[in-house]
Every structure is written in C-alpha cells, then in structure tokens.
Simulated assay, not measured.
Amino acid sequence: MSGQERSSTAGRLLTGAAWAVLLLGLWLWGREVTDVRPGTSAPTTGDMAAVGRPPEVQLPPARPPLGNAKPQRVDIPAMGVQAPVVARGLDPQGAIDPPPFDQPGVVGWYGAGATPGAAGTALLVGHVDTETRPAVFYRLSTVRPGETVRVVRDDGTVAEFTVDDVQVLQRDHFDARQAYGTRQSGRAELRLITCGGTFDATSRTYTANVIVSAYLTGSGV
C-alpha cells in the first residue's frame, strides 16, 4: 500500500469505524452511565495504554463550572493548534458526523451534549489526517498532563482546561464509560478524540482511539 493510499484510507476511517466507537460512548452516556470510579483513568494493562501522569506533575484544583455557551474556537498551545469549532450531530447511520474532509482544520463539537465549560463532559472530535496531509488532531497523542486547552465561547468567555489524562484505548476491548464518562461529578470536563494506535492494512482501520481528558481550572475573557 502506498503512502497516499494509506493516508486516504486513514482519512475515510474517521467517518466509519472511529465514529462508530464514539457512538457507543454516546449511547452509554445518554443512559447516564457516567461517573468513572476514582483511579480508573490511570494506565493499566491489556487493552488500554496511556501516557499517564508523571509523578512530579502537580495539577491545579478544578473550578466551578461555567454557564452554557457554545464553543467557537479551541486553542491547544502544546500542539500549535487554533481551530474553529462547529456543532455536529449524528449522521444517517447514527454515528457522530465529523467535520467535512475539505475542512481538515476544523474541530467538531457534539452539540447535543455538554458545552465546554459547563458541568458534564463535552466532546470535541477531529480528523487525524486527510487524503493528502495531516489534519487538526494529527499530534493529539503528544499532549501531556498539565498542559492547557482553551475553548473560546460565544458569550465572550474563555474556558481554560488542564489536561489530566492521555489514553490510547484499543478498539478490541473498548470501554466507552472509561473513555467518555465523567471522572468527577459536578466538574466541567472535556474530551479531545481522534484515531490512534497502529494502522491495520488488513481491516483498513487504526487499532485505537487517542482520548485526551481535561477539566476546567480557570476562565477569562
């Protein structure tokens, strides 16, 4: 398989298997399977690998959630990303509808869920690549705990999140509650999601999802 064929296949994946996995998480989330027991976000064995949290990283306390406001832009300084955010729903097959492939620098927000900064878990999804080049979340797996994600909202506020977990969850034993469930009740949390792992040429899919978890620690204007 040529590099171009592989890139094309990887891009098409994001409208198929990757978003089907996300749909499972949304189904469980909608059934109020939310809170994840303390400690279960840490890396374990088998189907879950994670960057984890270096012991010297001291994370700030969570701040109370903000009111509801729609996201307009997400800034991830560690990745050099400043990307517009658009609301997305579900496609005719019932999977989340990602941003169009002709907009590889755009991030999708699951508009039926929590808004970033409000109580609950807000979901932001992005392509890892297109047929010809890397896309907005190409370097998502390089983000580390303690780094900052900022979401500019349409009420003029900026919700500032601190990354507390980076996971690569294998698809064979995918735990949707672990991926998308709220880690602590009452917090405003954020998930950034794209494809990861290795590329399987036989099934023409990536073997995992990269999921960055963050929680609200500040706000500004």
Rank of each mutant, 00 (worst) to 15 (best):
W19G: 11
W29D: 10
A119R: 14
D155M: 09
A10D: 05
G186C: 07
T130I: 04
P64K: 04
V107G: 08
A10C: 08
I76E: 07
I76A: 08
A159E: 04
T121E: 12
V158K: 00
G218K: 09
R144Q: 14
G126K: 04
P61Q: 15
N209V: 05
A122G: 10
G156L: 10
P77Y: 11
A69G: 14
A208S: 10
S41K: 03
V136E: 08
P98L: 11
S7D: 08
L59E: 03
E32V: 09
A179I: 11
W19E: 13
E56A: 13
T207E: 01
G39V: 06
A114K: 06
V86Q: 11
V86L: 04
L216I: 01
A18R: 05
G197A: 02
R183T: 10
A201I: 06
G220P: 07
R150C: 03
L140D: 04
F199T: 01
Q167E: 12
R37I: 00
G105H: 11
A69C: 13
S185F: 06
T115L: 10
H173G: 00
E147R: 03
W19A: 14
A188M: 05
R183K: 06
T34E: 12
A62S: 15
S213I: 01
A208K: 00
G25H: 03
V210S: 01
V74N: 07
A118K: 02
T130Y: 06
V163G: 03
N68P: 07
Y215R: 15
T198P: 00
T205S: 09
L13P: 01
S141M: 09
P43F: 04
A50V: 04
D129Q: 14
L13F: 09
G111P: 00
G30H: 11
M48D: 12
P92N: 09
D155Y: 04
R6H: 00
D75M: 05
R73G: 04
R153S: 12
D129A: 08
K70A: 15
